[in-house]
Simulated scan of single mutants.
Amino acid sequence: MQTVFIYDGSFEGLLTAIFEVYELKSDTVHIVTNAHYTASFFEEKHEVATNTQKAKRLWKGILKNAKPTDANLIYRCFLSELPDMEQSILKYVQLIFLHKQSVAKDFGEAYVFRLAEINKKIGREKHRMEAFVRFRKTKDGIYFSSIAPDFNVLPLIESHFKKRYADQIWCIYDISRNYGLYYDLKKVEMVHLELPPSILSSSTSIFEEEELNYQKLWKNYFESTNITARANQKLHEQHVPRRYWKYLSEKNLLEW
């Protein structure tokens, strides 16, 4: 009978679940988050309590038997939040402990190939977020940006923005996952906010009027330099996919 390991959705929780798969010597296993669990008469249920020590022991074992490349791949693919991602990560970890070496390039294994393909998608999303995020200055002096990426890439873009905007107080908020990164000129921390609806629009009650005027000037410049007769919409959307237009001031799609 299959055993379902139910965890809280955190990365530490997933590592704890995989540790307990080995600890309990479970053979037929399915790992799922609390939010996606559906009870079945044909399965045994095992609830996983996130345990930092167990998570650290598994992580240490991964690094000991494989390479940082493998650990990085596991973490990045976890951030994809794709259905059944836990199973692919479990199988990947099992391959590491079976072979006692890195399996990152063993593309003959279906689970390795799947994680490699997902990692490419994660990389593209990270790159686009770094390129397309636009800040707007609020009246209290914070440069604010709201995003809704396909994958949970905020942890991956933190370093980029901390280095690039080291002299500004900023906040990048993922409205689809309801958390953000806040930088206070010294450190970056994770925050959860109750955002008013007007934060997603060009509201003078939140943003500086000078900032809104700058956006209008930028949009006018963009329109004036665009040569309609030479427009190649298909090529344009290849470089700047339509789903990213909502981040760009020049597209005038701030309300979404």
Rank of each mutant, 00 (worst) to 15 (best):
A110E: 15
L217Y: 10
E23W: 12
Y183W: 00
T138I: 02
E194D: 12
M129W: 00
E194K: 14
S80C: 03
P197M: 11
K121P: 05
Y37A: 08
E250P: 02
E23K: 07
H30P: 01
Q168H: 15
L15P: 03
A55S: 07
F144T: 08
S88N: 07
I169E: 09
I122H: 02
H192T: 12
I6G: 09
K216A: 07
E250F: 01
D174L: 06
N213S: 10
K67A: 14
E44C: 06
Q87I: 02
Q2T: 13
Y75I: 08
R114Y: 15
D84S: 09
H30N: 05
F144K: 05
T38C: 11
T228N: 10
R136Y: 01
A66W: 00
K246M: 14
K121C: 07
V153Y: 04
Y143K: 10
F11A: 11
G123N: 10
A231E: 10
G13M: 09
Q215Y: 04
H36N: 11
R230I: 07
L217R: 11
Q233I: 08
Q87T: 07
E81L: 04
V32R: 08
K64S: 10
P197T: 06
F5K: 06
K54W: 14
L248V: 09
Q168I: 13
I227K: 04
F222A: 08
E109C: 04
K186W: 01
F144I: 09
S88H: 15
V112P: 14
E109L: 10
Y244R: 02
S80A: 14
I31R: 06
F222H: 15
S203R: 03
Y247E: 12
S88W: 15
R57Y: 12
L254N: 13
W170M: 07
T16C: 05
L217I: 14
F42P: 05
F207Q: 13
